[in-house]
Write a protein that binds this DNA or RNA. Sequence first.
DNA 1: TGTCAACACGAAACCGATTTCGTAAATTTT
DNA 2: AAAATTTACGAAATCGGTTTCGTGTTGACA
Lengths: 340, 340
Amino acid sequence: MKQKITIKTIAKELGVSTSTVSKALKDSHEIGKETKDKIQAFANHYNYKPNSLALQLRNQKTKVIGVILPKIVHHFFSTVIMGIEAYANEKGYHIIVCFSNENYQKEVETLRVLSNGSVDGLIVSIANETLENKDFSHFTDLVEEEIPLVLFDRVVDDILCDKIVVDDVGAGYKATKHLVDIGCKRIGLITTPDHVSVGALRRLGYEKALIESYVKTDSKLIIKIDEKQDIKKQIERLFEQNLDGIFAVNEIYAANAMRIAKEKGLNIPKDISIIGFTDGLISEYSSPSITTIAQHGFIMGRQAVELLIDRIENETEVFTPKKIVISSDLKLRESTKTSS
Amino acid sequence: MKQKITIKTIAKELGVSTSTVSKALKDSHEIGKETKDKIQAFANHYNYKPNSLALQLRNQKTKVIGVILPKIVHHFFSTVIMGIEAYANEKGYHIIVCFSNENYQKEVETLRVLSNGSVDGLIVSIANETLENKDFSHFTDLVEEEIPLVLFDRVVDDILCDKIVVDDVGAGYKATKHLVDIGCKRIGLITTPDHVSVGALRRLGYEKALIESYVKTDSKLIIKIDEKQDIKKQIERLFEQNLDGIFAVNEIYAANAMRIAKEKGLNIPKDISIIGFTDGLISEYSSPSITTIAQHGFIMGRQAVELLIDRIENETEVFTPKKIVISSDLKLRESTKTSS
DNA sequence: TGTCAACACGAAACCGATTTCGTAAATTTT
DNA sequence: AAAATTTACGAAATCGGTTTCGTGTTGACA
């Protein structure tokens, strides 16, 4: 890189002190008009830009927010990023995005690297592996250091910090209830292993809806996907059961289920109704398009960063962790019957 | 945030100088074993982490790469990010991701903010608006300052820097040629306005394939989508023509085309074959699944960052801009006939 | 016992800014 | 004309590290 022009360069070149340059560039009244003009013209001509590292060091704040996501090739998470970035920018912050790739070690490492002054605060959605092995000390350490932290979507109660979550129970309930309402009697659930909290919560909603509607729950109708194995094969086993409705806790599962149903010659939605989760492009563009729970990722991201910036800028307040629940809507499309 | 523990704190607490602490923590031979142990134990106990801003300032490098994308809720771009992040991490770099949202002003602003020392180099895919109004001075300024810059996918020749592109002409040719080969006679093209270079290039490939196969090109078969208006309506107009094949320059256009074809009662692929671009989830999960040009975003990202880090770490070399062309493959699926 | 090297550590400069405080010169006040 | 005040600028500290260059204390050797 070319030798950057600094305040020192300008000072030497114009035969003044660095303090004079600094003040002149800030249009301070302390500096005479002539000197000011001279300095400003010079700086302008050579396209001087103050070194942000120096400023960050001096001001003890970076105006940068760290974001750690389990993955990015995923409609929900990329939508959340958009929400975060939009509001962050509005407030003069930038975001540095990292990915844990659902990997515990990488999450620990990334957290370590980002928590050494590079960022003013962090927004994180926890990696699956971490949720599985239940070791959250890297997060509690962070809380200990009082580094502002907001968790979203995948959260755990043990970590004392602000949280933004979807009303997963409510969403699971809404979806299942709708299936019941349109006349489904045997509703399958395609979910994640129990350690993924969102999956477990959505299942709770599913069960609640069934119980409330006096529909028998049947563990044979519930299938927990192990993502390390072939997803489609696992879902196929669900179709050995007699089904007239499916609630899948994400888009991919729903799309897979739909494909299998078609392969089996079932008509969607006449023979079987399907509801997914996450209102992504698959749901929108597949045919039939998939009725789904819309998660409002953009709003979640925005809320998360709003909360975080509030923490960063109002440190003085006593700390009482907030938990914001974002409600989610059922978006009716073609994969569900319109009524019984 | 809690008062961070610094080298100064440790020095004062243990009654030594900061230089001693610094050296002790680096296990320098200059420091006696006893002192070293004492300092290391103390630092360890209080979980001392060197302030990265201070180091970056001193070393005059940040080990951070800035990435500016037009959008993120997009399979191709998020895949590219993965590729960038993976290799960057391997090399000890972090990435700070920003979005132009296809907006010229935001691109200028973001570039300005990132080029003041926060990053060692930049990877950018140019915003549509910028391509349209053809003002690239914010990029040429960057080149002027000799800040390492790599452009990918959406590039322009006027900017003298490294570039990673897809072989868009070749890809367009491949797709169209395949349609011809399976017997399509009237092949529609759904593309972008001309200022989007990738769209224009893919069209070139399309035309080349047709000419080569002695198929008449017909401008009525080519439709340029204005994304500010309703996409589906625009594509519907294409169906007023007699068609037996469609090449769409992205997934969304292809999915829309497929939906319209279905609505018109056409059988895919019997009545009409469709090929898309970008191997995203839509192509994979729609039914029929869409034959598509796979862009290898991960590889592109990786190549881009490889090139960039090479530039960053070997500044001494004379600068001759490289242009790497990533070839793309046709991924056959269900939306095209298997043969004529 | 004087000399020299090795050892263990500290002072100070540096990275690029900001900001407080001090001060010479100019101007105003009395 | 002496005193007070304003003007216009510079010196130096600071942010949190690293690194070069001393330097005082040992111990070994002649």
